[in-house]
Design a protein around this nucleic acid. Structure first.
Lengths: 353, 353
DNA sequence: TTGAAAGCGATACCAA
DNA sequence: TTGGTATCGCTTTCAA
């Protein structure tokens, strides 16, 4: 087993038995390249990072050596030395079939252009794993952090603050953010939806709401607004998060069971709303004749396929894109004036076809 | 500016001017904890990694010091020393609204249990950025790699092999994998779909196909099979990837323009198929009376909302889960007997309602 | 069971 | 424009 390793450390005597960290097996390092190019490691490093500070022909020589050796930089070492990792971490509850996928997509796309990479953490619903995840992620020393929601444990908040890196909390503006925030008011979504339906002339109301942090704010605000409007008897069903169509079907079934056969139903997600529509169809109810349905999120499938569905539209791509801009500005050392961005929402009404 | 930094390096004289790498600003390190606990850095390291090798009361003391200081390990340093990063990287074309989101979800979920984290790279369609992305990702020294597709540039394959880490290529079994693979035969999808429709009695065929790598294999195989079956005149439309509903609507419009008003249409994605159905509805065509539509992917929305849509179902979660198992097995040093897993597919026929 | 020293692969700083 | 040296924070190995 004599894989060649001829890295003489200038300090130790020729034949000291190799102690210290386990040697990486045969990876090409900066000094391997340097040796081949006949320059010092520092010069190779410069060619990689600031080639304009190196003589043109040296650059040439070094580039050839890099190509010949197939050298791949080690960003662990680089990051350790510079304390800058070019890594941005994001924590979202789930990514499959959710509004967060689009968000992560636009975030990643923008960051990639600036040379950053994405460390992705999925915390689940409810954010049970968030605390551990935050710890695990911070131990990678990301340059910035993208979080979902503004509600984190005291312990988490302390650690996050301690990290002293740009942090963007998203999808919510309910509580005071740790650093920066991109989102909208869930309370206003609930309020505006209630008012919208009331103005439309509806007088009987129901809600099917998920027990997700932010969803709860929406439908509670909906309920509170209805109370203010003098509506007393609102049928309400809760379901665990994440929601799916079956829960919506089920929810309408329960509402009907409770005698709610006519009026407006606010669902805390499009998936739920969608399920309600399917169940209504199956039972021969007319939408929005018998019941009107409002969803939330405006996922593509809902927008395109469920013309009867009124929903609350959020620009999911904007959330990621704006978060990226905030992060990049701060990383570039710019002073960010507006640390909180309200992306707003629109209530999109669709007629039945 | 006197932020305290009292890390006396045992080797250098007391007051050497601080040279070398830029000092990290006030981060708590292992030796800070060690100092507070009155033990050596090594002992703290052991408490973190193999507490069973440390005396119980020492563990106790150290744990307290860790808590008091709010110490967060630096995995850059750890990874550099051990050459194991506990990082798995994944490269997928896009994640928003695609089959890949579910896949990444199940992959991440499984890996997280085993203490690994996810480095996510989005390469786009076509995989224009893949080569650069692979390089950037390898420079983080992930312990394993999850790739989409089996077609990579020669340069990429060389680098990937050189990394000497477990690599799983997914969604395809068309070409010989670099290391391991989880997927299915796209050629067989095309063939089986053609045969399926032929057996149903259809004699007029069309295809709307994306110019994505794997999609092409599917619809070309579909065309080839039809030829074998003696069908000569197949109308075909191509669209760029990623596909969306509008392209499907548009595609059907074009087919109708070409005089294809009746028969079976194979779409290379559910999004396309979905668009075709909407357009058919808008134009008053009956499905599957006038035209039959077959999609691919079996996204939830399609399954639930488009009863007229026949589609090819892939277990997307299984792809991620199985990839995770292969990776973990290899990382645990097990010898993986089956390096290639065919997850298969099913043609799901839905009746019009 | 604990500690000391060397080294992982890179960069910052100073000197040449 | 280039090179030498001292780190970055951790783990390995060996010795006590």
């Amino acid at each position: 087993m004599s894989r060649q390793r001829a890295k003489d450390s200038a300090t130790s005597p020729e034949n000291a038995s190799p102690r210290g960290a386990r040697p990486s097996r045969g990876t090409v390092t900066l000094s391997d390249v340097a040796k081949l190019a006949g320059v010092s490691a520092m010069t190779v490093s410069r060619v990689l990072n600031r080639p304009e500070t190196v003589a043109a022909e040296t650059v040439e020589t070094v580039r050839k050596a890099i190509a010949r050796t197939g050298y791949v930089p080690n960003l662990l070492a680089g990051g350790l030395a510079t304390t800058r990792t070019k890594l941005v971490a994001a924590i979202v509850p789930t990514i499959s079939g959710s509004i967060f996928a689009a968000c992560i997509q636009s975030l990643t796309d923008r960051l990639e252009i600036a040379g950053y990479q994405m460390l992705l953490g999925l915390s689940g619903y409810p954010a049970a794993r968030e605390e551990g995840l935050i710890n695990a992620i911070l131990s990678r020393r990301p340059d910035a952090l993208f979080l979902t929601g503004t509600s984190h444990s005291a312990q988490s908040r302390r650690r996050l603050r301690g990290a002293k890196i740009p942090i963007v909390e998203t999808w919510d503006l309910s509580t005071r953010p740790i650093d920066m925030a991109v989102g909208f008011s869930h309370a206003r979504v609930g309020r505006d939806t209630a008012q919208f339906l009331f103005d439309k002339g509806y007088r009987r109301f129901a809600v099917i709401g998920a027990e997700d942090e932010r969803a709860k704010i929406r439908w509670r605000s909906y309920l509170a607004t209805l109370t203010e409007l003098g509506v007393t008897d609102v049928a309400s069903i809760t379901t665990p998060a994440p929601t799916n169509l079956w829960m919506g079907r089920d929810g309408l079934g329960k509402l009907l069971g409770e005698g709610f056969t006519q009026g407006a139903i606010f669902c805390s997600s499009d998936a739920l709303a969608h399920g309600v529509l399917l169940e209504a169809q199956a039972r021969g109810l007319s939408v929005p004749g018998d019941i009107a349905v409002v969803g939330f999120g405006d996922l593509d499938f809902a927008a395109f396929t469920v013309p009867a569905l009124t929903t609350v539209r959020i620009d999911r791509f904007a959330v990621g894109r704006l978060a990226a801009e905030l992060i990049l500005a701060r990383l570039a050392g710019e002073r960010v004036a507006e640390k909180t961005i309200d992306v707003g929402f629109q209530i999109i009404e669709r007629e039945s076809t």
